[in-house]
């Protein structure tokens, strides 16, 4: 049951084409929502944490690009590398 000032039909109706893939992952113990982009890259869309200091961490700031490297060895794990904030590239 919805108790909101937004009308119900506005909540449920939305244009189908704007449905981008989002995933929720754990980066260094903080919950982050990623928006899938092109070429296996993801952009941090939202940080979900109650720790106010986590929001000061530039690596977790919304807009940060993340590249995924899928490792066959540790399958099904996906390894992460944050591109534009100076973390070193992790190689096998």
């Amino acid at each position: 049951m919805i108790y909101s000032i937004v009308p119900c039909d506005q909540l449920i109706n939305y244009p189908q084409d704007s449905n981008q893939e989002r995933i929720e992952v754990d980066i260094n113990g903080e919950n982050v929502v990623l928006l899938k982009g092109e070429n296996n890259t993801y952009t941090i869309e939202r940080l979900i944490s109650t720790n106010p200091r986590a929001y000061l961490n530039p690596e977790l700031m919304p807009g940060t690009m993340i590249m995924t490297i899928i490792s066959k060895k540790d399958s099904p794990c996906v390894k992460w590398e944050i591109i534009n904030n100076g973390l070193e590239l992790m190689r096998e």
Binding site: V25, P76, C77, W80, M90
Partner: peptide
């Protein structure tokens, strides 16, 4: 529910 880990942690944990 994909199990996804941060790169550094994955590396540390091997072995």
């Amino acid at each position: 529910n994909q199990k996804i880990l941060f790169a550094k942690q994955t590396e540390n944990q091997t072995g």
